[in-house]
């Protein structure tokens, strides 16, 4: 009797032991850190490697980009360029010049009609820089628009000049994406390599698995509610979203969002959100960030040809929710809807 039962008991104990072992010792727990900068939330979730140190370092890198590009912080290169508007040229760092060049190149894709870093006097006119919101008159808008285009910007090597004394540049439309570029450069060099890092910088994402081809599931935020309207699957990528649902004000039942359409001087109204997925290549974080505004301010009729222009330059796919709530995708991505339109 005893002999017959002993092996069974041993087997059960072994089984229970193994189950316990795997339950308690799965992959390392992710370390999540949340910081606040660039007027938004910055969250890093790192699994494996020296996670806490990685998170701290990523935050330091984002702070550096903020100090370099900020529209508000004294001593930033943007503030120096703006302070010299109409007076003379300013010498900037090679990194800053490269970022400006990238932003101007994205502007050129749609001839400055849908994205312009020199639109910031209009943002100020609408009160988005001071949060003292107001609806300007049509005359104020057309007057301001006259000097709020990048044709006022002269960029030669690392020398920058704004011709009109009233012109201003603001790199808020590329700074978060550019931060993700800088972070990705650093993550590649980290030893030991983390298994996964998810950086969420105000909704702009860096999905990093160190080339392990992780199959990421990226939720697309419902622009008129909490939660998601669906998701897309992606390899490691930068994911940038421009939307009208976080920074906006309402007057007389009308919504005015913070993204100013450079062709009109009014807040963009054609779409609710545009999400751009770009592959992991230098500057593709910044490019994706800027393209978010391009597609956000584009009418449906021109989105397809715009996409064909940028597809060869690292853009994997685009998800757009238009002003009526209709969703469309561009590129070889599959959008899986989790809610009805």
């Amino acid at each position: 009797m005893r002999k017959a039962i002993a092996p069974i008991v041993a087997l059960i104990i072994a089984g229970a032991g193994l189950t316990t072992f795997f339950a308690l010792r799965t992959s390392p727990e992710p370390v999540t850190s949340t910081y606040f900068l660039m007027d938004t939330v910055f969250t890093v979730k790192t699994t494996g490697g020296d996670a806490a140190t990685i998170n701290e370092h990523l935050h330091a890198l984002a702070s550096d980009v903020d100090s370099m590009t900020s529209y508000y912080k004294a001593e930033s290169q943007t503030v120096r360029v703006n302070a010299a508007a109409g007076k003379g040229s300013v010498s900037v760092s090679p990194e800053y010049a490269a970022l400006l060049k990238t932003a101007v190149a994205v502007e050129a894709i749609d001839h400055g009609r849908t994205f312009d870093i020199a639109i910031s006097p209009l943002s100020s006119l609408w009160g988005f820089t001071t949060k003292d919101f107001r609806v300007p008159s049509a005359k104020e808008i057309s007057d301001t628009l006259a000097y709020s285009h990048s044709d006022q910007l002269v960029l030669s090597g690392t020398t920058v000049q704004l011709r009109d004394s009233r012109s201003r540049i603001d790199l808020g439309g590329v700074a978060k994406g550019y931060s993700l570029d800088v972070m990705e450069e650093y993550l590649k060099t980290v030893k030991p390599q983390p298994q996964q890092v998810i950086v969420d910088f105000g909704g702009n994402l860096l999905l990093y698995s160190g080339g392990k081809k992780h199959d990421w599931k990226v939720g697309i935020r419902d622009p008129r509610g909490q939660g998601i309207i669906g998701y897309v699957r992606s390899d490691d990528a930068f994911v940038a979203t421009s939307g009208d649902y976080e920074r906006y004000f309402e007057r007389d039942g009308k919504r005015y969002c913070h993204i100013i359409d450079p062709s009109t001087g009014y807040p963009g109204t054609l779409n609710r959100s545009a999400t751009i997925i770009t592959d992991i290549q230098p500057m593709h974080g910044a490019i994706g960030d800027a393209l978010g505004k391009v597609f956000f301010c584009s009418p449906a009729g021109s989105q397809r040809s715009l996409f064909q222009t940028v597809q060869g330059q690292g853009v994997v796919g685009v998800v757009i929710v238009d002003a009526a709530g209709t969703r469309s995708t561009l590129g070889p991505i599959t959008f899986v809807s989790t809610t009805a339109q």
């Binding site: 998810i198 969420d200 909704g203 994402l205 999905l207 990421w216 599931k217 990226v218 939720g219 697309i220 935020r221 998601i228 998701y231 994911v239 940038a240 979203t241 939307g243 976080e246 959100s273 999400t275 998800v319």
Partner: peptide, 9 residues
Amino acid sequence: GTGIDALAQ
């Protein structure tokens, strides 16, 4: 579980 790794917003 939302089953989502990250939220684009």
